[in-house]
Design a protein around this nucleic acid. Structure first.
Lengths: 206, 206
DNA sequence: TTGACATAGATTGTTAACAATCGTGGAATA
DNA sequence: TATTCCACGATTGTTAACAATCTATGTCAA
């Protein structure tokens, strides 16, 4: 979620056991769950590797988000009274604070979390779950194909969307979100630069 | 998926081991995955139970489907050339055949599978996965709240939707699908009749 | 020098025994 | 008779040893 682990990084059981001070069973459970969410890939007798989405995967993820998020945001803006906007307002503040202090991983995490919280605000458990999966996948994709600059830092766009929701402007909110997603997607260059996995243990312990 | 296991049925590890002739590890892996999909619930130190969706869950599932499926079908109908309609056509035939021979579990399974295949036809891996989860959940819900009659047997509605797609009528297809979902949902009476779990082992082996 | 092969080490997959927890039934008491 | 407590059995959770598989290194031959 924070793009600290590069795709194709091997996650060996023994290392994870040592790092987290946990038995192998726990690790294997966790790996199985992560693989069921598509964040890692379990290769038989070879181990677990951080998922490396293809270009086709990337397109599919954005297509799926384009299908779900616009009507979702529209619905939110249609009756913003019943939902808890406070969480979202607070979140925007957190994002701003992280941006000011230039905390890269924090910015990335919060940037994705905004969309998750948007889905959570709908009050629909399943939409929330779906969104969470799509957002984490998006994070992987941006880490892989993203232009290293501010691709994941859409500045004030999140705030604008929230404002449109608060002021009951469904169409504007939907439009803003669509262009926001397009922004993110067009920021990708689709040249799968296979970055070399790094030290690891230190990364995990951060 | 075939509604052969009633909600709240306990799935004990030892029984599953004996029934399928498999070690406990495999069973536990399977149970963990099923729980991650929300089909069963893992209670700590108590075991696995077939999920028992609440009314709120039921509403959420249908709301999520209402959000996703209409635009999905619309997209399919907009350019039905690029997709493989043959699979869907064959499927309708299977449904008809099962209905003729009155094979209850088969009808239920195929009835859900139609929607899954609709999502598969989109070619989008993630939409397919989301749809599959929603459909299986719907199956549980219909089994719980469904009027025991033909709630899950919408007769020719699937065929109509497919035809609208084939003849490039996006709006009609979308409209048909919406009313189809409403049909299913309105067929529920929302009185959580907690049916008593049955013999089990025999059911599993079928 | 390169290629194939074999062996050794490391890693994952599986099994079985052990520990911990929970539900049930019975006994004792009010 | 009803209720509480204790103990037993059953079931789940965990651990550790074992088996199977893969990767890598080194040797031998062409």
């Amino acid at each position: 979620m924070e793009q600290r682990l590069a795709p194709n990084t091997k996650l060996s059981e023994s290392l994870l056991c040592k790092t987290f001070g946990v038995g192998r069973m726990r690790i294997r459970r966790a790996l199985l769950l992560l693989s069921s969410q598509g964040l890692i890939e379990l290769q038989s007798n070879r181990g677990a590797y951080v998922a490396c989405p293809s270009k086709s995967d990337a397109n599919d993820v954005f297509a799926a988000r384009m299908l779900i998020e616009p009507p979702l945001v529209r619905n939110l803006a249609q009756n913003p009274d019943v939902i808890d906007l406070r969480v979202l307002v607070d979140h925007i503040e957190l994002e701003d604070a992280a941006r000011e202090q230039n905390e890269r991983t924090e910015i990335i995490r919060l940037s994705g979390e905004f969309h998750t919280k948007l889905a959570q605000a709908s009050g629909n458990k399943f939409i929330f779950r779906m969104m969470r999966e799509l957002v984490t996948r998006t994070s992987l994709i941006v880490g892989l194909f993203g232009s290293s600059e501010d691709a994941s830092c859409p500045d004030h766009e999140h705030g604008d969307i929230l404002q449109a929701i608060q002021t009951k402007q469904p169409q504007k909110a939907e439009k803003l979100l669509i262009s926001h997603l397009h922004h993110i997607q067009s920021g990708l260059d689709m040249k799968s630069r296979t970055e070399i996995p790094e030290d690891l243990e230190a990364i995990l312990l951060t």
